[in-house]
């Protein structure tokens, strides 16, 4: 693993909110063609770590490197341009635009045509086709014209995934993509992610609580606890390790969450 250059790396990445250290000196590197799952109890700092990587937050100290280049000082937009894609844990869409329009915005961004205000009809059809393709991907084809604010929660979660897919990034960051979905919707999304994994040049980061899913899907598991990276390794090994049993599974067994029961 070490001989290959890391696609994404965080070096001693740290952020403090007041006195509270939400992400504490996290150093970790990820190789292309792998899927890494990040687990940890609620408030462990998983989302905050993602925010630091994708640029929503600026670190107190430490660096983020993308293909060896330090991107710590770049804006979110610039990082997205460089191939970092992100889906959000809390649904974060364009509520009064239709589902299709939402995806189309992502497609147009990957085509880099947002600044064009005189559109050729052929280009419009092309973008629309791709947008529909990604909607069908997450089984939302029939909802194309519905404004997002009218969609049920599960569909909004799927749309969140569709937006990330439509961006066609190199690095995919999913933050609890299946949270709040019904039992029959979950496999749809997980299949999508499993299929993504087959593309060798992609890097996938996944925050997910469902342990059975995590075990079969991941190449590697990273455990965060109180903002610190406490374990990192093969799924079987990590899940069996006493640190994780105590820090993660222990606490989540104590807190009856939907994820734990699923």
């Amino acid at each position: 693993m070490a001989d290959q250059q890391a696609v994404l790396e965080t070096r001693s990445l740290t952020i403090q909110f007041g006195g509270h250290v939400a992400v504490d000196e996290v150093s970790c590197a990820f190789q292309a063609g792998t899927l890494t799952t990040i687990i940890g109890p609620n408030g462990a700092g998983k989302t905050t770590w993602f925010n630091l990587i994708s640029g929503q937050l600026t670190p107190s100290s430490g660096q983020v490197l993308l293909a060896g280049e330090d991107i710590s000082n770049l804006s979110t937009e610039a990082r997205t341009d460089k191939g970092l894609g992100r889906a959000f844990q809390l649904t974060n869409l364009f509520p009064n635009l239709s589902a299709l329009e939402n995806v189309r915005l992502a497609v147009a961004s990957s085509y880099r045509i947002g600044h064009i205000f005189w559109q050729r009809a052929s280009l419009r059809r092309d973008i629309e086709d791709r947008a529909r393709h990604y909607l069908d991907f997450v089984r939302l084809g029939h909802r194309a014209d519905t404004p997002v604010s009218y969609l049920p929660h599960g569909d909004q979660r799927k749309l969140e995934v569709a937006l990330l897919m439509a961006l066609e990034p190199h690095v995919f960051m999913f933050d609890e993509p299946t949270a709040g979905m019904s039992v029959d919707e979950v496999p749809v999304i997980l299949d999508l992610i499993a299929n993504l994994k087959k593309q060798d040049d992609k890097l996938i980061l996944l925050v997910e609580h469902k342990m059975d899913v995590v075990r079969s899907l991941s190449d590697r598991i990273v455990v965060l606890h109180h903002g610190q990276l406490v374990a990192d390794g093969e799924p079987a090994e990590i899940i069996a390790s006493p640190v994780v049993q105590e820090a993660y599974l222990g606490t989540s067994a104590g807190a009856p969450t939907e994820e734990a029961s699923a």
């Binding site: 929503q56 959000f88 974060n92 635009l97 961004s109």
Partner: peptide, 14 residues
Amino acid sequence: AIRENEFRAQALGY
């Protein structure tokens, strides 16, 4: 998109 959710528009790379 900016009107609806500027934060997300930025996250999409705009």
